[in-house]
């Protein structure tokens, strides 16, 4: 089987509310996969379970064939799992470059060093700078994140995740709250990502989803409603009723 990430019978409840109901899911290697569904469907919760931020009530998760269900967040990141957050989760007061460098330093395993100056770690800094360059953020490297416009902050969010050189990247509404002009920039960035990274993207903007994804999964009330190629999903009657219909009226 050629799965980068696989999920079996994943369940999660908050009290009486079922937000994941026996989810079976598979992310292929190099996938461009979208996860869509109405507000409150449980998409973010799903990602939080994949990254180890939330514990599932039951079920199993495999990363590259290895069972990661019991592993903590750090261990999963080490195995190549990266994510972005729906709401910016950055070091607002720190310079943009530090946001990325902190992530790169963790991956390179230098973050425990106590005596050599951070500034002397040219490898980390150069790599972070390169990343910012590719995302068009080089000029802002020394500005604090808080001073960037929201659209650029969303790019920093992606840059921090890319600093981990993930094999599986989970993007939670990367263009949420970004004016459409700038959201094109984000789409460009995503389109240019290396082909061997498996990407799962949550997105409400159907334009973006249909341009980016080669496969779509629809989640509603914690359960998978449908899965297939974009054309199939667009045709699917139930999906139209539950989700697309509701948005396009």
């Amino acid at each position: 089987m050629n799965a980068a990430l696989e999920v079996r019978k994943l369940c999660k409840s908050f009290g009486a509310l079922k937000v994941a109901d026996e989810i079976d899911f598979c992310l292929e290697r190099g996938a461009r996969h979208a996860l869509i569904g109405p507000n409150g469907a449980g998409k973010t919760t799903f990602i939080n379970m994949l990254t180890g931020r939330l514990r599932p009530s039951s079920g199993q998760m495999l990363l590259g064939g290895e069972d990661i269900t019991e592993l903590g967040q750090a261990a999963r990141v080490k195995r190549g799992l990266g994510r972005t957050f729906q709401i910016n989760t950055l070091f607002l007061k720190l310079p943009v470059i530090d946001n990325v460098a902190l992530s790169v330093a963790e991956r390179e395993g230098v973050a425990w060093r106590m005596f050599r100056a951070a500034n002397a770690h040219r490898g980390v800094i150069d790599e972070s700078m390169d990343l910012l360059q590719t995302l068009g953020l080089a000029e802002d490297a020394r500005n604090s994140v808080a001073r960037l416009p929201y659209g650029k902050q969303r790019l920093v969010e992606i840059a921090v995740a890319l600093g981990l050189k993930p094999r599986v990247l989970l993007l939670d509404e990367p263009a949420a709250g970004v004016p459409s002009l700038e959201s094109h920039r984000i789409l460009e960035v995503l389109a240019a990502l290396p082909g061997d990274i498996a990407i799962l993207i949550i997105e409400h903007d159907m334009d973006l989803v249909f341009r980016f994804a080669r496969r779509i999964t629809v989640l509603a009330q914690g359960a998978i409603l449908a899965e297939g190629a974009p054309a199939e999903i667009a045709e699917n009657q139930r999906v139209r009723e539950v989700y697309l219909g509701e948005r396009h009226v």
């Binding site: 931020r53 950055l90 070091f91 902190l102 330093a105 963790e106 106590m114 951070a118 980390v124 921090v160």
Partner: peptide
Amino acid sequence: RMVYSPFGASLTGIRENDVRMNAVGA
């Protein structure tokens, strides 16, 4: 020395946003 080291930087990161530090695998 510690303050200027990667270790010190990561402590600052934890102070500023521990959710993110967890998410980058710290």
